[in-house]
Design a protein around this nucleic acid. Structure first.
Lengths: 209, 209
DNA sequence: ACCTAAACGGACGGGGGCGTCCGTTACTGT
DNA sequence: ACAGTAACGGACGCCCCCGTCCGTTTAGGT
């Protein structure tokens, strides 16, 4: 290494980085995002300085820790959009994302931007647009109620976040039940009473659905 | 006053007590339960010691601060139960309680026993039983879906808690919309797909509904 | 084997919340 | 008016978290 600026980490550094991410994922998942940085460091078997050297701010750590889970989230949306039956795809998105959030408390907080900007906004906007298209098709197929707006999905996700139980197991069960209720509410139905107006929740919503 | 143990407070003490409760209500309502005790004291214009003298623990303060709101909550349930149309009463309970929670963040946290034991369990159990009776009648009338269980109501309340927005105004709008969706999901409907099983959330539920 | 710099982590100072003690203030009843 | 005591609040010590510095260790190229 005769050159400056080594863009490659030393083997031990890389190892520690991986252990830190593992520890962060485990703790965030169980206890939410507000675990002390030092506890992550302790669990990873490194000093606080090492943690801060690798991830200068908590947001960076959160973003890196949940990068693949966020990818999984986007994959779910893509899978739903790929379904030939738009209503089935729509239901699948709700069910799977609710379950994902039920399994990981930290991810939910990160996803809902408790830490603003922790997750990339660009991808989020794109994902929202995909879901909007899916909803459009589900409406045209006559399965999704016509007064559904994208904000309703955000609303449901936010609401799902509020479900806290003791264990992850019951959390998942409760969340599944909730998703079932939500789907029921979204399904087009002849007796269809008009809903109260929706609140504007998503920042970007060019045409609402 | 020649006797010991004055069970009556001095006038200034009583005044301060009232100001503390007001400050606590205002701050809890806006920011949730985890505002620092000192900030409540500061806002009330008293020293920290006075606050701790009057309310030895935060739970006591919370319980006293939300006593009347809790009464309002019970009044809503009573009103719903008194409605000759059980389904209308049931809807009213959901709508009003959701709105109440939307208006006061601290009350929601207290109600959901983020602080365990902050609100009296006895009254809660009684209230739950009342709602159970109401649900029973709404089912018999054929308006509430038959697979509804009391835990679903808890679930909805927990979910409603998860809805956070910037202002109280949008919070209420969002919560109203959510209540509308919940009611829609609970309404008996011919196309009625079976729901995923419910999780056990309420501690006391002798016969579930 | 050796040298260099990357990497490490113990330790520090700062900030904030908590609950309590104690000297001072000011109600209240005579 | 006065005494006596309830009530007050500034200040203290404790703990936990944060982010950084610096002396030490160790990987990795020669």
């Amino acid at each position: 290494m005769t050159d400056r600026l080594p863009h490659t980490l030393r083997s031990d550094a890389l190892d520690n980085r991986e252990r830190i991410l593992d520890a962060a994922r485990a703790l965030f998942s169980a206890d939410g995002l507000d675990v002390p940085m030092r506890e992550i460091a302790r669990r990873a078997g490194v000093g606080p300085a090492t943690l801060y050297r690798r991830f200068p701010t908590k947001q960076v750590l959160v973003a890196e820790a949940f990068a693949d889970l966020l990818r999984a989230c986007r994959a779910i949306v893509d899978e739903g959009c790929a379904d030939p039956d738009p209503w089935r795809g729509f239901c699948l998105v709700i069910e799977k994302i609710c379950e994902l959030h039920a399994r990981d408390r930290g991810f939910t907080e990160a996803f809902m931007s408790t830490f603003p900007g922790a997750l990339d906004v660009a991808g989020r906007a794109y994902t929202l647009r995909s879901v909007a298209g899916l909803a459009r098709r589900a409406k045209d197929a006559g399965h999704l109620r016509s007064d559904f707006v994208l904000d309703d999905l955000i609303l449901i996700l936010m609401a799902n976040k509020g479900i806290h139980t003791g264990s992850v197991a019951t959390q998942v069960i409760a969340s599944r039940r909730f998703a079932g209720l939500a789907i029921q509410a979204f399904e087009a139905c002849p007796q269809h009473a008009p809903l109260p107006p929706a609140a504007r929740l998503a920042s970007a919503a060019p045409d609402s659905a």
